[in-house]
Amino acid sequence: MTRDTGPAHTLLELLWRHELPPRRGGRGPRQTVSVDEVVTAAIGLADRTGYATVSVRAVAAELGLRPMSLYTYVPSKEALTILMVDAVAFEDTPISPDLPIRDRLTAVARQIRDEFLAHPWLLEVPAWRMVLGPGRMRRYERQLAAVDGSGLDDVAMDRVIAVLSQFATGNARTALAAAHSAREQSDADWWDAYGPALAQMMPAADFPLSTRVGAVVGELYRAPGDPAGDFEFGLQRLIDGILPG
């Protein structure tokens, strides 16, 4: 039987490299670093300077290698990205099965949000049809275990994970945007620049609810919004709707 050596098979072998038996007698130049080291270097570069800076040349420079030599480890930036995403998934900590179901669902969403906050470049990576490696599969298994015992059927369990993931991802995106804006100009300085002029130009009688609610939340948040508070508020109400009555 001829062994499959197509691109999909090669990528899966890279992803599942620690679960597969080692190859014998490989040809080509001797590798001076490991695939794990390549992936770690790429994640570190993306964390520091953003996903756009990750390239075969840049990662090779991080490791002190010639650019073309990196292709002996990974076939492309796309393949490297998939390996990076799977490696990050291994950072998840186990969710204790002894926790109440509500706390387990909260932990699922919190882990997803925290991952994006720690690795903002993940928001730039297409999530649809991401090739599954051991990191992402272990995460899915743990997430399912967190939902298991809730009284939901298998399809509903999968949907719960999807809904929590989408909610946490969207909130993380807003939180990162807020943090980026705050680095460029503080919320207090921004409001000092725009608030008084807006108060003069906007007829309060035309926007009575906006004026009233805006004054209350503006005093509370001292910012245009409160992504962290929104996450806590929304997550608990989302879980209220998920769990069977």
Rank of each mutant, 00 (worst) to 15 (best):
T2S: 06
D4H: 04
T5N: 11
A8M: 10
H9I: 00
T10H: 06
E13G: 06
R17Q: 11
H18Y: 05
E19W: 05
L20P: 03
P21N: 06
R23F: 02
G25M: 06
G25W: 08
G26Q: 12
P29D: 12
Q31K: 15
T32C: 07
V33S: 05
D36G: 12
E37R: 13
A41G: 09
A42E: 09
I43V: 14
R48H: 13
T49H: 11
T49A: 14
G50N: 05
G50S: 07
A52F: 09
V59G: 01
A61P: 02
E62Y: 09
G64L: 09
G64Y: 11
G64A: 12
L65D: 02
R66L: 13
P67I: 12
P67V: 12
M68D: 15
M68A: 14
M68V: 08
Y73V: 00
Y73P: 01
P75K: 04
S76H: 07
S76I: 10
A79P: 00
A79K: 00
L80N: 06
V85P: 03
A87Q: 12
T93W: 09
S96G: 11
P97V: 12
D98T: 14
T106G: 04
A107C: 05
A109L: 07
A109E: 02
R110G: 01
I112H: 08
E115M: 13
H119C: 01
H119A: 07
W121K: 04
L123R: 06
V125F: 08
A127C: 04
R129S: 13
V131N: 03
V131T: 15
P134W: 00
R136H: 09
R136S: 15
M137W: 03
R138E: 12
R138I: 00
R142K: 08
Q143E: 14
A146M: 04
V147C: 01
D148L: 10
G149T: 07
L152F: 05
D153Y: 10
V160G: 08
S165K: 00
S165V: 04
N171S: 10
R173W: 07
A179N: 11
H180V: 10
S181E: 13
D192R: 14
D192C: 08
P196T: 06
A197D: 13
L198N: 12
A199R: 15
M202P: 03
A204Q: 15
A204I: 09
A204C: 07
A205T: 12
D206T: 10
D206V: 09
D206C: 14
P208H: 14
P208D: 13
S210L: 14
T211C: 08
R212V: 09
V213R: 14
V213Y: 15
G214Q: 09
G214A: 12
A215W: 06
A215Y: 09
L220R: 15
L220D: 14
L220N: 11
Y221T: 10
P227I: 01
A228Y: 10
L235K: 04
L235H: 00
Q236N: 13
L238H: 02
D240V: 02
L243T: 01
P244W: 04
P244F: 02
G245P: 14
